[in-house]
Amino acid sequence: MSAALLEVRGLTRHFRVRDGFRQHRTAVAVDGIDLALRAGEAYGLVGESGSGKSTVARMILRLLSPTAGTMVFRGQDITALQGEALMRLRENIQIVFQDPHASLNPRKTIFFSVAEPLVIHRGLRGTALQNRVEEVLEIVGLSGNFLYRYPHELSGGQKQRVCIARAVALDPKLLVLDEPTSALDVSVQAQVLEFLRDLKARLDLTYLFISHDLSVVRHLCDRVGVMYLGRIVEEGAVAKVFSAPDHPYTQSLLSAVPLPQAKQPAGRIVLSGDVPSPMAVPSGCAFHPRCPRKIGAVCETERPSLDSRPQGRRVACHL
């Protein structure tokens, strides 16, 4: 096994939520997850809303501080980096957000947005800056014509390319992609996905790809981690997990996706009920109230650990 580029141990994040007058409750967004990204891989983190996958991204980016746990990037503990060291980390980990329109400052030109990291970290100015910005835009397949345009004049796909350009301008090692294509149309999504695949090889990147869309993860990622209510319930190689899911949640998740084909497969598992609130995570296995294959009291009382199984898979289930 190659050394991990990023290793996350027991990462936890609680939010204090105001509930009524002067009452505070704790929402558990991320609940002690372990994760190791190998250099050069594309790791997909999937889950429904409220599963905590975006919170994980924001913690890795150091936009949000963890309640507990450690994060180690290339052998260095980054959990509490400050100042100069944090700036160096920012050169190496970058992020692309879901909504390309909202992640570009509406009052600034494309040039400004792409130049910003270069100005901050490299101190580039004038012609050198202009050349580098054009070069980066070239990488994402946009011509210099876009330099002085404003975000509202670009299409969704073009805007997402600008966001990717900004993220790769400093040659990062790890790119966190937080639902980068879910705001895009199918044909544009196809372009961006293919482009991301190609970019990863060209720039020698590692991806942490966060998505609720299983097909997209299947297409782009090597390994996948499935999150439910702040915990990873199953992890393994994409092809293995998708063809033979072990955890009942993964099974129902995969089975719930409506397929773009004439005949929907028989025997679909439709889960009843809603995802519980992160403010009231069920005891034991968080999935037990909805689980179609619950085996008994152990599911309600004991939290299953994420155990290793053959073929590099990990599953958190009492089954």
Partner: peptide
């Protein structure tokens, strides 16, 4: 149809 990523890979 060709642009849709497939669940079965």
């Amino acid at each position: 149809l060709a642009a849709i990523p497939r669940l079965d890979g």
